[in-house]
Design a protein around this nucleic acid. Structure first.
Lengths: 119, 119
DNA sequence: TTCATTGTACGAGAGACGTCGTAGTTTGAC
DNA sequence: GTCAAACTACGACGTCTCTCGTACAATGAA
């Protein structure tokens, strides 16, 4: 194998195109506490993260479900990388469609998290 | 009776306090097309509107349901005024809790509406 | 090949949701 | 007192959602 080529593994997953992303779907995806937490962490890290990186209060089956909801609503992009599945925020698409919305939602989530419990 | 006093009629409805409003609940409330439409219209008019002012593609029972979801999530405030029930956006509370979020959501909704169908 | 890691598929259960229709209550006007 | 208008309550329905457990598939390493 060569060195740096990010060879994408075989199987790939269905994603909505930018034009297919619906505001209602995005809001629904973010209205679940587990998913909102995932998105907050993705935004905070700024890079793609594997599913197993997250320490969520649900089983693996349920985790898979939540990541699928996020993907199908257009919030994240998922690609296989070896045995891991990497998840990245679709920032470009969301910012292109709804300028400023994602950031104000993330800010709102951070404020709420700050008010209650964890900083 | 006197002339201009906005005498509030007897029965009143349960509303969450500002501190009880949860982001997830607000996002869930706005993730339904009918409710998003109601909120957009309330924001556009800027004043309280009666339920019957809206021409929605659902029955009156369902309309009542949607207004209740909006009220219980903290998005709107409802007060009876005679036989009508007036609905107003809780702008102050939402802006206080989540600065800028409501406006960016409304802008996002307007952009999406502009892209598809009606201007 | 064997094995551990990572994640999926499938089915199931409990509950919430969006929708409706019918019957009822409250209010204000006549 | 009567009546129409505005809205609610309640029950029902089909669907979707969140959750889980078990069994399975793909990958990379030993």
């Amino acid at each position: 194998m060569t060195t740096a080529a990010p060879v994408p593994s075989s199987r790939d997953l269905p994603h909505p195109t930018r034009g297919e992303i619906r505001l209602e779907g995005v809001l629904h995806a973010l209205s679940d506490p587990v998913r909102l937490r995932i998105v907050r962490e993705l935004a905070a890290e700024g890079v793609a993260l594997s599913c197993s990186h997250f320490d969520l209060p649900v089983t693996k089956s349920t985790t898979t479900h939540h990541f699928r909801v996020l993907r199908e609503s257009g919030v994240i992009r998922q690609i296989y990388e070896g045995t891991a599945k990497m998840n990245a925020l679709r920032r470009d698409d969301l910012d292109g469609l709804f300028p400023g919305m994602l950031d104000s939602l993330l800010t709102a989530a951070a404020r709420q998290a700050g008010r209650h419990g964890e900083p």
